[in-house]
Design a protein around this nucleic acid. Sequence first.
DNA 1: TTTGGAAATGTTATAGCATTACATGACTTG
DNA 2: CAAGTCATGTAATGCTATAACATTTCCAAA
Lengths: 131, 131
Amino acid sequence: MIDTTDLTRNQDLVFKALVDAAVPLSAYTILDRLRDSGLRAPLQVYRALNTLCEKGLVHRLESLNAFVACARPDCHRHETVAFAICDQCNQVSEFSDTEVEARLDAWVRGREFRAERTTIEIRGTCKGCAG
Amino acid sequence: MIDTTDLTRNQDLVFKALVDAAVPLSAYTILDRLRDSGLRAPLQVYRALNTLCEKGLVHRLESLNAFVACARPDCHRHETVAFAICDQCNQVSEFSDTEVEARLDAWVRGREFRAERTTIEIRGTCKGCAG
DNA sequence: TTTGGAAATGTTATAGCATTACATGACTTG
DNA sequence: CAAGTCATGTAATGCTATAACATTTCCAAA
């Protein structure tokens, strides 16, 4: 279980904003929602987001330039996580697949490539929105 | 084989710039390199890039906000492609893995999620740069 | 041949995302 | 209490992408 008690004030505000939203938010949207709480500049948000990403509490979605609270705060061990992102309702399903990880790992090891970060994002339409 | 003969002037300029570079370029970097050829505004580049991506001649790298010429111009099927990106030398290796595709497809089908675009990007250090 | 529509282009302005640079404050540890 | 580290505050800037609108090009149908 990740420890969320040692977050600083700004980190806590940003994290709670993302948890409340339940969908990905851009840094500037987060800023807008936290102006009443005292945040005034983008950098305050970006700094908090960086720390939260490092802790595994938040994920960055590259294809959206947005951030989402980790769905599994009890399980930040999986380095590689995949996301299914609904372009209609913005909801994100987070999952991991050891076989996918293994195949990608096999490929990079075969080329002696040292992987640091892996992004897997599937954009589309969720069951509910496809009707 | 993809037909590159029906490209418009701007599309051709942008495509050749990417082929020449051999590494990913941002839209603004492309613009800078093509000012002498007559391009003056970002939108000229973005429009060309959009068309080239649709044709499968160019890939967008989400984690870099950059674009790279497709490594396999003989294969314009819009299949899922993965990229290994070296953060040192910027070189990109493009590959596809049917097993990875199958696993991701199985996951989304299980949730009745309709996938439109899949991004797989591995950031790290290549063999040569790891020394 | 003309005409009308689709696609491409050109241009300006603006919106949205992210970082640099520098100053200040808070807390810890020797 | 001094030094160091980490978080914060603020302003300015730079990078990425699109909106809106005018114009041009080209080709096919009348």
